[in-house]
Design a protein around this nucleic acid. Structure first.
Lengths: 222, 222
DNA sequence: CTTCTCAAAATTATAGATAATTTTTTCCGC
DNA sequence: GCGGAAAAAATTATCTATAATTTTGAGAAG
């Protein structure tokens, strides 16, 4: 034991780069130079190029032939787009997942909700939030749908971290509580209705020190 | 002039392979051997591997580390899944596109509808159908959403070609006509409601000569 | 001081070569 | 003949090398 499935180098690189992009360590528009990345990961650039293709498909990077790969930019319109896609897809997933939710799962969901409310910083909150959503949706068992939702959550997280680089404050997420309560009572439609609105709630982050462009301070907070 | 944008070799390979998978020339489970494909396209296998990553993201192929890439399999559950994802995403796109539809676009939509009804074989119908849907949805201007819908259309086409390898018969698509009529009258909600049902209509293909597994003869026909 | 041109440097994209793993085949014992 | 171990072949994944393109920068002309 201890021997992990040990997937390919390309997938490891793509995971690490995706994480950096989502966390904002790599800024929108930043160039991703294959040789430099290859050197960092102590590999050749062949797996790096494969990782790029993955990031491209996730919408985290943009590749221009012969001109390299850059971190994808985004604007308020895309934040809205992602929010609306999440709304319809997560509702669809929940409709199917509802009948497969067990008390044990709902207990774990409650844990995630509590953890989110108690989170001291935006990263902690995001992790708990993602866990909450995944727990209630995964039982739908629709792999393609769940993969799409995962990609949208990565985009959401990026918007969120971009808006709240600091200045996070604890708050009780009443939507999460209401969704959980509805699910416990078997009211799937009610839960779905709350979820649909919840995911489309777009918040305004704290004003940055420098009065930067206003387009970067909005994010999905659901 | 005459000088095409000339994208990368990898993207050309991924397009050709995607087309073969969709048309059923490459059967589910078939192995995609990088060296053979590289030889066919007269390149090395590096761009081939990049193309694989793209096909994987589209859900057309599955890669197992060290064990190669295979054409993805599918079953009735996935046909339903794709139909439902298309339903919610296309409705979302149409809601946004509606206000941007011009009479000129609607004329082109009517052309596509006519072409679909007149199509003599399943490939002709699929091309016209795809054009119909793209024409009414593209004006939403949401790139991420449209890209997801395109991938789902590729999956749909695959299911369709798998079910109707032959035995296609002309028929007037009343849903398309009703959607068009509603859009001409500015009744976006009505058009969206029809579209939502339309896309989820799953038809049963003609029984193949050999009584094969029943799971392969169902497909989305909208 | 600006901006244009051209050369040098950096970078991307692909080819060719190598190591490691998996699959297939062969062949031996039962 | 049937299973199964061992060798051979095929295949994947990666690295190194090369060609082609783009970006950068220096220097000259205006």
């Amino acid at each position: 034991m201890g021997k992990e499935p040990e997937d390919t180098i390309a997938s490891r690189i793509s995971r690490v780069l995706a994480d950096r992009i989502v966390r904002g360590e790599l800024a929108p528009g930043a160039r991703l130079r294959q040789d430099h990345i290859a050197e960092e990961f102590e590999t050749s650039h062949v797996p790096v190029r494969e990782a790029f293709r993955r990031l491209e498909a996730q919408g985290l990077a943009i590749s221009e032939p012969r001109r390299g790969v850059r971190v994808a930019s985004f604007d308020l319109a895309e934040v809205r787009e992602v929010a609306e896609m999440r709304a319809v897809l997560e509702v669809l997933a929940l409709r199917h997942a509802a009948r497969h939710l067990t008390p044990a799962i709902l207990d774990a969901v409650e844990d995630a909700a509590r953890e989110g409310d108690a989170a001291a910083d935006v990263h902690g909150w995001e992790a708990a939030n993602r866990r909450f959503h995944r727990l209630i949706l995964a039982p739908c068992g629709m792999k393609r749908l769940l993969a799409s939702i995962d990609d949208l959550h990565a985009a959401s997280a990026r918007f969120l971290f971009s808006a709240w680089q600091s200045g996070w404050e604890k708050r009780t997420d009443h939507d999460h509580r209401a969704i959980l309560a509805a699910l416990r009572q078997g009211k799937a439609d009610e839960a779905a209705a709350i979820l649909q609105k919840h995911v489309q709630w777009i918040g305004r982050g704290p004003q940055p020190a420098k009065t930067g462009a206003a387009r970067e301070i909005f994010a999905i907070v659901g």
